[in-house]
């Protein structure tokens, strides 16, 4: 019996650590975008390396948690839901890393009239990522209200959509940008930043269903 409680404590600690990686990735993403817009392109390489490291550690931890959940036959009824949440949360970290990699490779040249909105868009997506981590943590630890975090993610996703639309309009109405290819790169970069909040919303929808299934 003591062993069972020890396994429970250990796994709760590991899952908490996994969701800490989402907080870490969100911070890296927000800082990376903000610094890039400020013209500090040299730090972007470090941010990308940090995002890659976070993604690698999260992947390893997720595999370890999955192995332990199956080998120790823990939470048989909710195992599928928990693993599903870990996998979909991992996709948020992946999306953040892909975005930083894309910016580092393509170096999109945002004009001053778009800069502020790009930083705000990055912050909204990072906030949505934080909401995912908080909702998932609440589902696992049962401390706090999941709905509160789910509503926050919906809010930030909606905000990200609005900023994305405004930014696309700015990009295509800006007469300083003469080449269509440049407009398309800027548009796709903005779309990729906003997509992170869309993935976050999909994850919290899963959390919401899992929480309903868990209630007796």
């Amino acid at each position: 019996m003591e062993g069972l409680f020890k396994h429970a404590r250990d796994l709760e600690t590991e899952i908490t650590r996994f969701f800490d990686y989402i907080f870490e990735a969100a911070l890296t993403l927000e800082r990376g975008i903000s610094e890039y817009i400020d013209g500090r392109t040299d730090t972007l390489v470090d941010r990308l390396a940090s995002a890659k490291e976070t993604e690698r550690k999260a992947d390893e931890l997720r595999r370890d948690i999955r192995f332990k959940l199956y080998s120790r036959m823990l939470i048989p009824e909710s195992r599928g839901d928990v693993l599903g949440l870990l996998e979909s949360s991992d996709s948020v970290i992946d999306a953040a890393k892909r975005l930083l990699s894309r910016i580092e490779t393509e170096r999109p040249a945002f004009r001053a009239n778009a800069a502020g909105d790009v930083v705000r868009l990055g912050a909204a997506s990072a906030a949505a990522m934080n909401g995912v981590a908080n909702a998932c943590l609440t589902y696992v630890t049962n401390r706090g209200e999941i709905q509160e975090y789910i509503h926050k993610v919906y809010f930030f996703e909606h905000e990200a959509d609005e900023i994305e639309e405004a930014l696309k309009r700015t990009i295509f109405q800006d007469e300083e940008i003469t080449r269509l290819s440049e407009r398309m790169i800027l548009r796709d970069t903005v779309g990729a930043i906003a997509e992170i909040s869309d993935i976050a919303q999909e994850v919290v929808e899963r959390v919401s269903v899992a929480a309903i299934k868990r209630s007796i």
Partner: peptide
């Protein structure tokens, strides 16, 4: 309000 793993135990 116990966590999912403790509730399982």
């Amino acid at each position: 309000r116990v966590g999912i793993f403790r509730q399982d135990a």
